[in-house]
């Protein structure tokens, strides 16, 4: 058995809480999906195409394909979970007062819900152009 120096070990698997263990696994699953989806998205938007040729009608034409709407919405769900749960870990590490913790966490979740709603709304409602 290899002994692992706790100074170099990763954030260890949570013990004793089903919810925290669930989040721990989901961070890793969404991380792997984002490795593919987010890097593909960045490559498409900056290497295949260029921001100088992208505008609202270009997005509308791209979203004429259901597959790209599904791709972008899946990316949105993965990134919202991964980034907001990541910042939740940062807050847990640095914000200690009960009031400050409540305030920062509530703000975090409210912003997450707003982005979930706004992102989902635009993916679902942007008119299909021929």
């Amino acid at each position: 058995m290899v002994t692992i120096d706790p100074r170099t070990a990763g954030r260890s698997r949570p013990q004793g809480s089903g919810f925290e263990l669930f989040v721990w696994y989901l961070m890793r699953i969404t991380g792997v999906m984002l490795f593919v989806l987010a890097l593909a998205h960045f490559s498409i938007m900056h290497f295949v195409f260029d921001p100088s040729q992208e505008n609202a009608s270009w997005i509308a034409a791209r979203w004429g394909s259901l597959a790209w709407r599904v791709f972008d919405w899946t990316l949105l769900m993965m990134v919202l979970f991964h980034s907001f749960m990541g910042v939740r870990t940062v807050i847990t590490d640095y914000v200690h007062g009960a009031r400050a913790r409540l305030l920062t966490m509530s703000t975090l979740y409210v912003v997450a819900i707003i982005l979930f709603a706004a992102g989902t709304a635009v993916v679902l409602t942007l008119p299909v152009v021929a």
Binding site: P51, A56, S83, F84, G119, A121, V122, L126
Partner: peptide
């Protein structure tokens, strides 16, 4: 990670404008 999170917040808002205010989106682009 925190830097990417900050960009994601901005980016979802600007993508929302594709439907909400296309002219504003084109200016941001």
């Amino acid at each position: 990670g925190v830097a990417i999170w900050l960009f994601v917040v901005i980016h979802v808002v600007d993508i929302y404008l594709v439907g909400g205010d296309p002219k504003a989106y084109n200016t941001i682009l």
